[in-house]
Each structure stands twice: as C-alpha cells, then as structure tokens.
C-alpha cells in the first residue's frame, strides 16, 4: 500500500499528443476509477504508470519514489489486462506464482501464497488447469489472482470486466470491491462502465482528450459536475441539456418556453439548462411537453419528450400510462437544476 502521484505527465506518439499534462494524486489505499470516452488516453496513462510506455514529459512517483525512468520490474505494480494476458503455457497455479518465482521466492512459500490467493478468489479447484480450459469469468479471476498474490504497491486494472457478460460483471464487481476492502491496496481502475466507477471507487477521475476534466467523490461529481461534458458523461440515461437564454431570472428557449433557473446568471447570457431525467416529475404547473416515445422497463418508465422543440428524456420511477402525442406538463426539481455556459460548457 503506497501513494501514487503523477505530475504534468505528457505522452506523444510521434507528433500526436495523447496525454496533455496529467496531474493526479492517489492516497495510500485509495480506489480511483478512471473514466472517459474511448480514445481519451486512459489506457495510455495506465501503461505509463506501469512502465510499459515511456513518458514524454513529467514525473511519476510511487510510494514517494520517482519511478519515471524505471522499467516495470522496478515499480512494484501489478496490472490486470482487458484480455487477461494469462500465460497460455502455464497452469493457473504457475500463472499466479510466476512473479514470485522470478524473484526467487522458495517454492514452498510460493505454493502457500498461491493457495491463499486462490482461496480468496475461489480458484482452489482450478490450480492445475491451463488458461485454455477456463471460462471467461474464471480467467478474469486468475488474472486478478496473479495481481494480488505478490502484494504489490499499486494495482492497475484496464477494463478488467469488459469481456464478461452482464451478470458476471456485476458479480466480479462486488468481488473486486470486497478484495480492495480487504487488502487495502492502492488501486487505479480504468472502466467504460460508469456504474462500475460510481459503485467501486472512492474517487472518480473523468478524462477527455488527454486531460483530466474533473475528479472527486462519485456522488460529488454526479451532483455538481464542473462542466457540461462531465455532467453528460456521468449518469444513464444522461443529463438533458436545453439551450436557451437568461431572461428575467428564467431560461427562455427559442420558442419562448420558460424554464425555471437559479438566480445569479447574467441577463441575456446563452446557457445550457441541465436536468437529469430522474429529477423530473409529471404534473403541476411546470413546462409543457409533448410525449414522443414511451418505454416501460418494468420498474421504471422512460419517456422521450420534446420541450420547446428540443429533445429530452424523462425517467419516472414508476409505471405510467401515457401515449405518444399526449401533451403533458413537467415539473423539474428546482434544487437539481444545473446551468452551464453555452460556449465554454463550464458550470455557472
């Protein structure tokens, strides 16, 4: 368990700049989730921290030690790859014990440590098998087991669950979370799945185009996104944005529909009015809207509506009998309204 910090880290492949100055501090024992759209540089950042790729500039410290120029061997990190990268020619047991063997750990001790890690992950019965004989979920657990067996300073996960089906993913999510609570190893976890990020992490870091857009506790990011990008990226279905202009303390859409707005924004400014689908209710004296599509999912009902000509989504936590074409009124929760500058996207 140790701290990790990255200072003005940059990385270019040829002339394309992939990471454009990353600053990130991870406390000892913390679980940090890294999210962002595809191609934003999450894997690259992780590979730089692991030492699989050299930095173009900046500094990486693990446990207070500058490791920027060290090869992976000198960094004491463990990594779980998206495709697991198990050694096909070694048994599960040998896969897990490989790093220990390389360090010259006595065979007896390796066996004991592998057995212990296998017990934690429920791999006891599989130790003699080869990776080719395992299911996807089992391979995933072996990859995780290979990482935990040597008790590294830092765990790195690169979308470890993305090759599993939905049910297994939920199961493994819980298992990894439990593992972290038990071992308390500092963890950086890259994922596409924001539920994973929200539920597992102590802190979520949102990246875009080689930069960190915002970082913070999951709910803090959810409730107070620093800009429209983060607001739209977190949450599913994602936040509604309606474009309008501040007029007399409210937001006026192009067709004149007026939306309630918190005070403080300058008169005449062009803004994005943001509202999460689940923070809207039907009825009352709210704004008029027209129902376009009704999607009952069982517990919830999702509506596609038009407000002042602009598309929006409403998520009702109940069943509702509504029909396309129906005119309804919507009441947004006043304290959950987000306003963003229409040009820069930053929070007002």
């Amino acid at each position: 368990m140790s701290t990790m910090s990255v200072r003005s880290l940059t990385k270019s492949f040829g002339r394309t700049e992939i990471l454009r100055g990353i600053d990130l501090d991870v406390a000892a024992g913390e679980f940090v989730a890294l999210v962002g759209p595809s191609g934003c540089g999450k894997s690259t950042l992780l590979r730089l921290i692991a030492g699989l790729e050299g930095a173009s500039g900046g500094r990486i410290e693990i446990g207070g030690r500058d490791v920027t120029r060290l090869p992976p061997k000198g960094r004491d990190v463990a990594m779980v790859f998206q495709n697991y990268a198990l050694y096909p020619h070694l048994t599960v047991g040998a896969n897990m014990g490989f790093s220990l063997k390389l360090r010259g750990t006595p065979k007896r001790k390796i066996d004991a440590m592998v057995r212990e890690a296998a017990a934690v992950l429920g791999l006891d019965a599989l130790l003699e098998r080869y990776p080719g004989q395992l299911s996807g979920g089992q391979r995933q657990r072996v990859a995780t087991g290979r990482a935990i067996v040597r008790n590294p300073a830092l765990f790195l996960f690169d979308e470890p669950l993305s090759n599993l089906d939905a049910k297994l993913r939920v199961e493994m999510r819980t298992q990894i979370k439990a593992l972290h609570q038990r071992l308390q190893v500092t963890t950086i976890y890259v994922t596409h799945d924001q539920i994973e990020a929200m539920t597992m992490a102590d802190r979520v870091v949102v990246m875009r185009a080689g930069r960190i857009e915002q970082q913070g506790a999951p709910l803090e990011l959810y409730d107070r996104p620093a800009n429209a990008f983060v607001a739209g990226f977190l949450g599913s279905p994602s936040m509604n944005f309606l474009e309008g202009r501040i007029e007399g303390g409210a937001v006026a859409l192009a067709d004149g529909t007026r939306l309630p707005a918190p005070g403080g924004a300058a008169e005449g400014r062009r803004v994005l009015w943001g509202m999460r689908p689940e923070d809207i209710e039907i009825g009352g004296e709210g704004m008029p809207a027209q129902v376009e599509v009704v999607e009952p999912t069982g517990p919830d009902t999702q509506l596609a509506v038009r407000i002042g000509g602009q598309a929006a989504t409403v998520l009702l936590r109940r069943r509702a009998v509504l029909h396309p074409g129906e005119q309804i009124r919507l009441s947004p929760a006043a304290e959950r309204i987000h306003l963003f500058d229409a040009e820069t996207g930053s929070r007002l």
């Binding site: 692991a50 090869p71 992976p72 463990a78 050694y87 490989f98 360090r103 290979r146």
Partner: peptide, 22 residues
C-alpha cells in the same frame, strides 16, 4: 500476444527471463 509479454514485464521478468520462460 503483446500483452502476455507485457504481463511478464510487470511480473518482473528480465529480458532474458522473458525469452526463456515466455
């Protein structure tokens, strides 16, 4: 797979060990 070689690097294998064991 390149990732298998990378896994070996992270597991602490020297180039020679990677050659011989992977």
């Amino acid at each position: 797979p390149a990732s298998v070689q990378e896994a070996a690097m992270i597991d602490g294998a020297t180039p020679w060990q990677r050659f011989r064991l992977v």
